[in-house]
Design a protein around this nucleic acid. Structure first.
Length: 419
RNA sequence: GGCGCAUUCGUCUAGUGGCCUAGGACACCGCCCUCUCACGGCGGCGGCACGGGUUCGAAUCCCGUAUGCGCCUCCA
């Protein structure tokens, strides 16, 4: 039975690179019908740790990466680690050194393993320094606690970041010293930012929370992340969660680092959003707006779905794109391009439209353009600006219908007055 | 500095010795569609880091160089 774990340190919010590692673990576990455990590598119990721990779980939940069983904490195994350290000292495998306990690494030969992503990796043992197991204050170190917990938890595959490669030979020797069999290791590469540096808090939007607030859709983010360092074949990009689970395997994970490409994520997110049913889209959009503090008329938000779904690729773009439906606009006079006369004529023409629906509105405005001997493009621009405040907006006729006759006429009048 | 890992279009990748005059996707450019934007359609630009081997034949195997990254903490 396959059992893997995600073992983040609760020093901050869940970082997108670690999320990708978590996803690989989760996919691997689900693919093999195994278990995915969540273990917090805490060494203290400060308030920040509690908050980060909560945040990590919330992020995983949002992404749909459910873990199996209870969350475990490294701190809870302090006593076990201490006891094991004493035993290793008694067996002569470790020794006291300035109050700390150190493990004797072998001096000759090599320590090697067959990495599921990189193939055989080996380190000359003479380069391995004796590892501190327990600090002089009694707390176990990460390099002691983590591999021991892997043993105690029956972890079969350790899928983690490549920054742990150098730790691996030490952990393998430790695991063998306690008479256990090392798990299979898979070291996945890092995720880099657009500048080629490892993604971190200093590089903009990198926590799961940030993606959520920018209006990304979790299934799209999962699909995108899965493709960072893994591929199914030479042409498949869009894959559902189930397809990902069915197809994922470590053999196809590449060892080289991947740069996070926001443009591709945006495109993929757009693909997902466009594929949603009207109702599902509305649900997600309403929830997003509520979460980000936009207290807008839900009914109107829902009615706007047909005119925005094809147009934006992130929910985060909605406030800018469709906000004119919910708040007054103040068009820059310069944007009207000196076509106040058109705006005024449009107001008069629209005043006659009844019912105030997209079709008759379109007929009226196209008729107006023809009468003024203007191309639709030229004629509609100042109207669009006057009503939406921008040269870019959802379809004009549908927008006017949603806005309503009174408000439309009011805005057209106001624009003429300002200009 | 030592040890380790990595290196195919700008980006993500396919490729495991002949199928490769290197395929796909995003981005970019052009055209079409069109009320703006977007979607969609069509076309285009663009890459095996470098140098040696091995082989009838190398993006694919070996060695070296360069570059990037990681670790070298009583951090995780």
């Amino acid at each position: 039975m396959v059992r893997v774990r995600m073992a983040p340190s609760p020093t901050g919010f869940l970082h997108i690179g670690n999320v990708r590692t978590a996803l690989f673990n989760w996919l691997f576990a689900r693919h093999h019908g195994g278990e995915f455990k969540l273990r917090i590598e805490n060494t203290d119990t400060s308030r920040e740790v509690v908050a980060a721990t909560e945040q990590i779980q919330e992020s995983l939940r949002w992404l749909g990466l459910e873990w199996d069983g209870d969350v475990t904490f490294q701190l809870d195994r302090m006593a076990d680690c201490a006891a094991l350290a004493r035993q290793l000292v008694e067996e002569g495998k470790a020794y006291e050194d300035e109050g700390a306990t150190r493990f004797r690494m072998p001096d000759e030969g090599v320590t090697a393993w067959d990495d599921a992503v990189r193939g055989r990796v080996e380190f000359p043992n003479e380069k391995l320094e004796d590892l501190v197991l327990v600090r002089s204050d009694g707390r176990p170190t990460y390099n002691f606690a983590s591999p021991m917990e892997d043993v105690w938890d029956g972890i079969t595959h350790v899928i983690r970041g490549e920054d742990h490669i150098s730790n691996t030979p030490k952990q393998i020797n430790l695991i063998r010293a306690v008479g256990a069999e090392p798990p299979r290791y898979a070291h996945v590469s890092h995720v880099l930012g657009a500048d080629g540096k490892s993604l971190s808090k200093r590089h903009g939007s990198v926590t799961v929370d940030d993606f959520r607030h920018q209006g990304y859709y979790a299934p799209a983010l999962v699909n995108f992340l899965a493709l960072l360092g893994w591929s199914y074949d030479d042409k498949t990009t869009i894959m559902s969660r189930d397809e990902l689970v069915g197809r994922f395997d470590l053999e196809r994970v590449v060892p080289s680092p991947a740069t996070f490409d926001y443009q591709k994520l945006d495109w993929l997110n757009g693909v997902y959003l466009r594929a949603l049913s009207r109702d599902d889209y509305a649900e997600e959009l309403v929830r997003y707006l509520r979460e980000t503090g936009h207290d807008w008329d839900e009914e109107l938000v829902r009615r706007s779905v047909p005119i925005v779904q094809e147009k934006i690729e992130r929910f985060g773009q909605y406030p800018d794109f469709a906000g004119f439906l919910f708040r007054d606009v103040h068009p820059e006079p310069v944007l009207l391009g000196g076509r106040e006369a058109v705006v005024e004529a449009a107001r008069d023409a629209l005043a006659e439209v009844e019912p105030f629906r997209a079709e008759p509105i379109e007929a009226a405005l196209r008729g107006l353009a023809e009468k003024l001997e203007l191309s639709p493009r030229k004629a509609f621009e100042p109207i669009r600006v006057a009503v939406t405040g921008s040269k870019v907006s959802p379809g004009l006729f549908e927008s006017l219908e949603l806005l309503g006759k009174d408000e439309t006429l009011r805005r057209l009048t106001a624009a003429v007055a300002v200009a």
